[in-house]
Every structure is written in structure tokens, then in C-alpha cells.
């Protein structure tokens, strides 16, 4: 059975409990008093399918698929305005990140959502050598929707790239190797162990 099915079985009809148990900082959700300051403070507020305040109420109302399949959480810019202003002290930014991560683990995250794609490219990029390779990250971003669109985006971004090269804030040499950690084996072992421990805690087997 899939992880999603496991969780449906386990928490049947109690999405709030599911979030409390499995989502980063999810135990805070029950503290929301629906004032709406978070939604009003969000720089991308108008672009959320369901702004944070609504997400919190939907969790309590068992709108499991509507929440987890939503593009909403992927609109978070991590500006922390909501955290700074929430009168109840909810770590809203972290809860949104946690919900996004959880929806991906369940296989419910929206397909072709650009931030979801970029966030995964970023993680893959940094894990490879322990440090971000900006050049490769940029290129993988431009080409994330296929070759044709990649060429179009690259042309559109050409001037910015040239400016970065000119001011030595980018180097083509980064494509061949680039910066990285010396003890990359150690770092990978740490990350592998951390993933194992976390999966065990949330009842997810292997990735």
C-alpha cells in the first residue's frame, strides 16, 4: 500500500491529528484563532488558492485532499511576516513548508508547480557536493520544463547572465566541478541517517 493509503487508513476522518503527528510544527495548527493577520500580511497573498488562515480552518474541517493538493503552500516566500505578526505565535512559515513537504511525501503535491520543482532542484543541487552550484542550479531551472522552453528562458535571461559574468559573480568554470565539501561522504552519511530517523518517526518506509 502507498504511504498516502497508509495515512488515510490510519487517520480516517481526523486530518488535524494527521497534521499534528506528521507535519513539521503541525501541532501548532489547533492554536489558530482565525484572525486572518497572516493572510493579510503575505506578500503573495492574492496568489494563494487558499491563504494560510483558510488552510488552517480547512485542516480542522477535514479538507484533506483540497489542502494537500493545493498550490497554496508553494506560494510562501519565507518572508516571515506571518510569524512576526501572528498574535497566537504560530510558526506559520514553517507549517506551510511542512505541509508542502508532507504533500510531496504523500505524492499529492501539484504537478508542474514551478516553486515545487525549483525547491527540489535546489535540494538536489546542494546535496550533490554539499554546497550550491549556482550556475548549474540556474541552468537546471531554465530547462526544468523541457529543452524548447529552456532555450527560450535562457535567451530571455541572457543579459542577466552576461552581467553576472562581467562582474565576476558567476563563472563558466563552475560547470566543471565547482565548489564543494571535502568530507562529502560524511555529509551524505549524516543526511541518509537523518532521513531514516525521520521516516521511522512518521511511519514512512524508505524513499
Amino acid at each position: 500500500m502507498s504511504y498516502n493509503q497508509d495515512m488515510i487508513e490510519k487517520y480516517r476522518g481526523n486530518f488535524l491529528k494527521e497534521v499534528t503527528d506528521n507535519v513539521e510544527e503541525g501541532d501548532w495548527v489547533k492554536m489558530c484563532m482565525q484572525c486572518g493577520v497572516c493572510s493579510g500580511s503575505c506578500p503573495l497573498g492574492p496568489h494563494w488558492e487558499h491563504p494560510p488562515q483558510e488552510i488552517f480552518m480547512m485542516i480542522r474541517a477535514n479538507k484533506r485532499e483540497e489542502v494537500l493538493e493545493s498550490t497554496s503552500m508553494w506560494m510562501c516566500t519565507s518572508c516571515y511576516n506571518c510569524i512576526a505578526r501572528c498574535p497566537r505565535g504560530l510558526p506559520i512559515t514553517h507549517i506551510m513548508h511542512g505541509l508542502a513537504t508532507y504533500s510531496q511525501r504523500l505524492g499529492l503535491a501539484p504537478q508542474n508547480q514551478p516553486t515545487q520543482k525549483f525547491a527540489n532542484l535546489f535540494w538536489k543541487n546542494l546535496v550533490k557536493k554539499g554546497r550550491v552550484n549556482e550556475l548549474k542550479l540556474g541552468l537546471s531551472l531554465y530547462f526544468m520544463n523541457g529543452f524548447g522552453e529552456g532555450i527560450k528562458t535562457s535567451l530571455k535571461m541572457k543579459d542577466i547572465g552576461l552581467n553576472m559574468l562581467k562582474t565576476k559573480r558567476m563563472s563558466p568554470m563552475e560547470y566543471f566541478g565547482g565548489h564543494g565539501c571535502k568530507d562529502i561522504k560524511g555529509l551524505h552519511a549524516i543526511l541518509k541517517k537523518a532521513e531514516e530517523l525521520e521516516n521511522a518517526r512518521i511511519g514512512k518506509s524508505g524513499s
Binding site: 511542512g98 513537504t101 516553486t115 525549483f118 525547491a119 535540494w123 546535496v127 543526511l191 525521520e198
Partner: peptide, 8 residues
């Protein structure tokens, strides 16, 4: 932005 690929 690393949250999607890496868990907590």
C-alpha cells in the same frame, strides 16, 4: 527553499 527535498 530546501524544504521540499529535505525533511525537517
Amino acid at each position: 527553499i530546501g524544504y521540499a527535498g529535505g525533511g525537517e
